[in-house]
């Protein structure tokens, strides 16, 4: 028996994903409608944002392009959760109907097996839009382009994505404890809309809340500072990569704990 290491899991993951994408592409109507849905959401978000800036020219001394950058970054940070962790949205139904049990008999990590089942292509449109907005904002902000800057942005993007996935892990895992956790997911997901705004509009209490309780500030604001405020990095930006790994791991443990508890109730 070979050891089940990262390589083993990656091999399985790519096997499943490549097959899944192949078969998904044969359902083109669904793909097009879903992608349109995602683009609609983002265009609407953009309109909201544009209307605000039609009436006011800055928010807390953040100008239009800086806020736009945050907006683009948040879209990019949401994409991996959308693409790779989408099965979390179905968790409630599986648990409620008892079908969740069918995931429990494979000799691999339960969370991995569950999450790997679905790869959601429609997030790609969102990602492209995010990249487009960031490039547009970057040009208008007249920042220089350096390899180090781009590398730092990529690292921060991964960190931000991990935090976002972690938040949704925990929100989804609530269904192991309560009946109608759909509300928890919807509610938590709504907050991500507010990741787009700079954290310094809040008072101290809520800054702490959004940094450490529901850490949406780590999804956009802190990671973005690596570009927007590169000369004076906040401490939380520096620790963001470590924080994100830790946070994701904790969310994974909570999810797994919930799963074992769920089986214990015999429903």
């Amino acid at each position: 028996m070979k050891k089940r290491n990262v390589k083993f899991y990656l091999a399985i993951y790519f096997k499943i994903i490549s097959q899944d994408i192949k078969s998904k592409l044969s359902y083109r109507v669904d793909f097009i409608i879903s992608t349109m849905g995602i683009l609609f959401t983002n265009i609407a978000g953009f309109i909201t944002f544009w209307i605000i800036f039609k009436n006011f020219d800055n928010i807390n001394d953040w100008n239009y392009y800086e806020i736009l950058f945050l907006y683009g970054f948040s879209l990019m940070a949401l994409t991996p959760t959308q693409c790779l962790f989408d099965n979390n949205w179905n968790l409630r139904d599986y648990v409620y109907s008892g079908d969740f049990i069918k995931y429990c008999f494979r000799p691999i990590d339960l969370y991995f097996y569950y999450i790997s089942e679905i790869f959601d292509l429609k997030g790609i449109g969102e990602f492209m839009m995010g990249v487009g907005i960031i490039v547009y904002a970057w040009i208008n902000l007249k920042y220089s382009v350096t390899i180090l800057g781009i590398l730092a942005l990529i690292v921060m993007w991964i960190a931000a994505s991990l935090v976002m996935a972690g938040i949704m892990n925990i929100a989804a895992a609530t269904c192991f404890w309560m009946n109608n956790s759909g509300y928890v997911m919807v509610t938590v997901f709504k907050f991500t809309e507010y990741t787009k705004y700079p954290i310094d509009i809040f008072n101290k209490g809520f800054r702490i809340f959004f940094s450490f309780i529901i850490p949406i500030a780590f999804v956009t604001y802190y990671p973005s500072m690596v570009v927007l405020n590169s000369h004076n990095l906040p401490i939380l930006t520096i620790i963001a990569p470590i924080f994100s790994v830790l946070f994701f791991y904790i969310s994974y443990r909570i999810w797994m704990f919930g799963a074992s508890r769920y089986n214990g109730t015999g429903t």
Partner: peptide, 30 residues
Amino acid sequence: FRVSLIVTFVGNIIYLITIYFLWKAIYLSS
């Protein structure tokens, strides 16, 4: 679904606080 009621309630409070700060910042900046 008592939990859903509580969650919706708490969620709304946080949501409203968020928009409070957002619009306060917007008005102050203007």
